[in-house]
């Protein structure tokens, strides 16, 4: 229990639980899940389905941030991947080709970022900003400035379908989180990432191919963004080069940071990023449910974010613990 309270994950869970309790207090239907046409139906299902894209972006972002970098281009890569999906599907290509191509485009974007950051030693913010700005233009070029409707019903299944009553997108994302977690924790990969993030020079002297580790993190992040782009397009059955993935990079970075991975790199938590993304989506749904006027919605959102960040700050917790102790001593 004590260890749980000390870890920042514990506090994130507490924040999430508080938010859910608050919602249920006002509207008991918030956690109601029913069977509807043979599949699960309810607010929690929506949160997981709609949140799956941010979760996916956060997964890739976790490894990049752990190497001490950041990837601002994920939102634009989402738009490009969506545009590629629309282009290929409407040209009559199959799902396998389309999804492989979208993933490939995402990974390619990651390669560009990786080369700029790891080989040419550009600052990650600057390097990925290039693709963030240019990427949306590329997506617009592919779509010719239009929103392209995708008619393929099988494609739609990815984001809106159900397997045994459970929505596909969260299943897919959960599977990826598990696989990634096993991969980085059961092999030396996670250790390499943390070592590079902690001290790149030292890890290089220890014989680690630091540049390669960094580069691969960006490629992985790009591929995740590519898949997120597929889900984005499948969710609305259209490629919207202008708006798809807009500001998504900020949500992803927030999810990672609130999940306990520091922007300075080093130790990272994949589970934390998952919970962070879940918190963001729950917050968004809370605003709809509580009927907060959209013009002021950013304020309560910001307050919750500040609160969770404060709860996680070791300094604040020390200070609070100190207050408790001195009060006890006085009594």
């Amino acid at each position: 229990m004590k260890a749980f309270a000390k870890s920042s994950l514990g506090w994130l869970c507490a924040g999430l639980a508080l938010l859910v309790v608050y919602n249920v207090w006002h509207h008991p239907d918030f956690i109601k899940i029913t069977l509807h046409d043979g599949h699960l139906y309810g607010v929690p299902v929506d949160i997981f389905t709609q949140g799956s894209r941010t979760m996916l972006l956060a997964l890739g972002m976790t490894l990049v941030i752990a190497t001490g970098g950041v990837d601002l281009s994920v939102g634009s890569v989402v738009a490009i991947a969506g545009a590629v999906c629309a282009l290929l599907l409407n040209a009559g290509h199959g799902l396998v080709v389309t999804i492989t191509a979208a993933l490939g485009v995402g990974a390619l974007a990651g390669v560009v970022n990786g080369v700029l950051v790891a080989r040419l030693a550009l600052q990650p913010i600057v390097a990925t900003l290039i693709l963030m700005v240019a990427g949306r233009g590329i997506a617009q070029l592919i779509c010719d400035g239009q929103v392209i409707v995708i008619a393929n019903r099988k494609f739609d299944f990815l984001a809106n379908g159900f397997i045994a009553g459970i929505p596909v997108a969260p299943l897919l994302v959960a599977g990826l989180f598990l696989a990634t977690n096993v991969f980085v924790r059961r092999t030396a990969a996670g250790l390499f990432v943390e070592a590079v993030g902690d001290n790149e020079t030292a890890s290089r002297f220890a014989g680690l191919a630091a540049a390669r580790v960094k580069g691969l993190a960006y490629v992985f992040c790009g591929a995740c963004a590519g898949l997120a782009g597929v889900l984005w397009a499948a969710n609305i059955r259209a490629a919207d080069a202008n708006r798809a993935g807009e500001n998504a990079e900020l949500d992803a970075i927030f999810a990672v940071v609130v999940g306990g991975t520091a922007l300075t790199g080093g130790r990272f938590s994949i589970l934390g990023s998952f919970l962070g993304a879940l918190l963001i989506q729950t917050l968004a749904t809370t605003m709809y449910f509580r009927g907060v006027p959209p013009a002021v919605a950013p304020v309560p959102k910001a307050l919750v974010i500040i609160l969770v960040s404060l709860l996680q700050s070791e300094k604040v917790r020390h200070w609070a613990a100190g207050l408790g102790r001195s009060r006890k001593a006085a009594a």
């Binding site: 929506d46 969710n235 609305i236 259209a238 708006r243 709809y288 449910f289």
Partner: peptide, 15 residues
């Protein structure tokens, strides 16, 4: 946005 409209509508339908 299309995805925005969808998300809000999902919440309205449940609420």
């Amino acid at each position: 946005e299309m995805s925005g409209g969808k998300q809000v509508m999902e919440a309205f339908l449940k609420k």
